[in-house]
Computed example of a mutant assay.
Amino acid sequence: MKKNRLFAILIAFFTFSCFAQNWKADHVFLIGLDGWGAYSVEKAEMPNVKTLMDAGCYTLKKRSVLPSSSAVNWASMFMGAGPELHGYTEWGSKTPELPSRVVNEHHIFPTIFSELRKAVPDAEIGVLYEWDGIKYLVDTLALNYHVQAPDYNLYPAALCEMACKYITEKKPVLTAICFDNPDHVGHVDGHDTPAYYAKLKELDGYVGRIVDAIKEAGIYDNSIIIVTADHGGINKGHGGKTMQDFLTTFLNLYYRLTYFVYLNYKRCQFLRLNNSILNSTLFSTIKLSSRIPIFFMTDKTILFINKPSIKSKCKM
């Protein structure tokens, strides 16, 4: 009897394992919170983000490239390479200060958006943002849709509303939604302040609404949702070499990765990645976890998903 029970458990385990390994998403949503330092996660009131953390895998040790500023780090995420290759090196880079190692037909270092466009010409691809510096880093010629939201000081929910409308109407294959906060509050009121945490609570509400829009569009079960940041900060600034500047959060709602932890018939609820990963690994993460057939990779990318060094936790 015990042998039969053990055999049944093993069959179930390997069946689920094969399903999990073969599963790939058809839709990827990147939600970026500019200036969201990893130090804040434990103290922040962010129930929607923490629900995603409980359902997926995450790390609080994702490292910015240097300098720990905006354009150089958004470029590294979108391009899957560090500044020594793509050439964008400053907070507000609009063009590379160093010659890019390679450029595509649009005369920009290849991005995840341009590579998807080449691989799947009819894919719906969109980028929505508040900070206008984003548009210089995404290769807008590769996009179906890119738009800057109006001033968030006057219309704080505008980007969220625009993103929800786009998702429900177009069901895009790849979407980046880039908020300019909590960075702005960090500069005005300071990091690790009541105003900073109030803004995180507000942003968490927008994340929840975007997730609801994905569900309304009928594509939630076939989607990857990534929530991350470009850099952190300390006092009223960033760009330095402190760990508060340097460490950001990376959350990947890819719950099917949890297949390899089965204990007492109860499935592991979340994975905490103990690895230090880099902003430039975002490209390869999307490549690994979705059906998006992107072939451009650089020697800077680090493939970390499903490596034995991942430490898991289970809620029993």
Rank of each mutant, 00 (worst) to 15 (best):
I177T: 02
F179N: 06
D180Q: 05
P182T: 10
P182H: 09
D183V: 07
V185E: 13
V185L: 08
H187A: 10
H187T: 08
V188W: 08
D189G: 07
D189Y: 15
D189R: 08
H191D: 09
D192A: 12
P194A: 07
Y197T: 13
L200I: 15
L200Q: 15
K201Y: 09
K201A: 15
K201I: 05
E202G: 01
D204H: 09
G205W: 12
G208F: 07
G208A: 06
R209Y: 01
I210C: 04
V211G: 01
D212K: 08
A213I: 02
I214N: 00
G218W: 00
I219A: 01
Y220P: 00
N222T: 03
N222S: 09
N222G: 05
N222W: 04
S223Y: 03
I224C: 05
I226E: 01
V227Q: 03
A229Q: 06
D230H: 10
H231V: 14
G233Y: 04
I234W: 04
N235P: 00
N235Y: 10
G239P: 03
G240F: 08
G240A: 06
G240N: 06
K241R: 09
T242G: 09
Q244V: 10
D245N: 13
T248A: 15
T248H: 10
T249I: 15
T249K: 02
N252P: 00
L253R: 07
L253T: 00
Y254T: 06
L257C: 04
L257H: 05
L257I: 03
Y259K: 07
V261G: 10
Y262P: 03
Y262C: 07
L263F: 14
L263I: 13
K266L: 12
R272Y: 14
R272T: 11
N274C: 07
N279S: 06
S280E: 11
T281I: 03
L282I: 11
T285R: 05
K287S: 14
